[in-house]
Simulated scan of single mutants.
Amino acid sequence: MKLRLEVGNSRITASVIDSGTARDFLSLLPLQLRMGDLHRREKCAHLPRPLSESGTLTKNYEVGDLAYRLPEGDIAVFYRHDGQTVPTGLITIAKANSHLKALSAEGPVDVTIDLAK
């Protein structure tokens, strides 16, 4: 299954990882989020409600990961790697591999997330 993220005129496609967290995230779609910048490596936003934490918890991420941030309950999309880990932990929901440049714009961006058709 694939997700489509729209950032301005750019479209990003991401492959969903099968987990309880990912399935719970899918139940929220479509989402329109104002995503702020965090550490100049990720865009993140609050979700309307907490997600299941039944996915694999990690402190590592890769560029293109769409992940659930714990304990904040935010969704994050990583557009750059700064060599650091995320001390509080992440559950990866999906992986994108291209068109991430739109996320690297300074400041907040409006993002629509839905299932890819």
Rank of each mutant, 00 (worst) to 15 (best):
T21C: 01
S15N: 11
A105K: 11
L29M: 07
L5Y: 12
G107C: 05
N60M: 00
A45W: 04
A116M: 03
T92H: 01
P48F: 00
L57Y: 15
V63W: 12
E62I: 07
L70D: 09
R11Q: 14
G83Q: 07
R80S: 12
T56D: 15
L70P: 06
Y61G: 04
L5D: 09
A105L: 12
K95R: 15
I91R: 02
K95L: 07
A76L: 05
P71A: 02
E62W: 04
D37R: 11
T58G: 04
L38F: 15
T88S: 13
A96Y: 12
G89P: 09
H39G: 10
I113G: 07
F78P: 04
K101A: 15
K59V: 09
E42D: 12
L103P: 06
G89K: 00
K43S: 08
H46C: 09
S98T: 13
N9D: 15
F25D: 00
D74V: 03
S19G: 04
L47R: 00
A96Q: 09
N9G: 10
F78S: 04
R11C: 09
A76H: 10
Y61M: 02
K2F: 15
G89W: 00
T85M: 12
G55A: 14
S104H: 10
T21E: 05
L66Q: 07
V63I: 15
S27F: 13
R34D: 13
D74S: 01
H39D: 12
N97V: 12
A76Y: 08
S19E: 10
E106S: 13
T92S: 12
R49D: 08
L70C: 04
S27H: 10
A67G: 04
N97Y: 02
T92R: 13
I93Y: 06
G55Q: 07
A67L: 04
P71V: 00
T85I: 12
V109C: 03
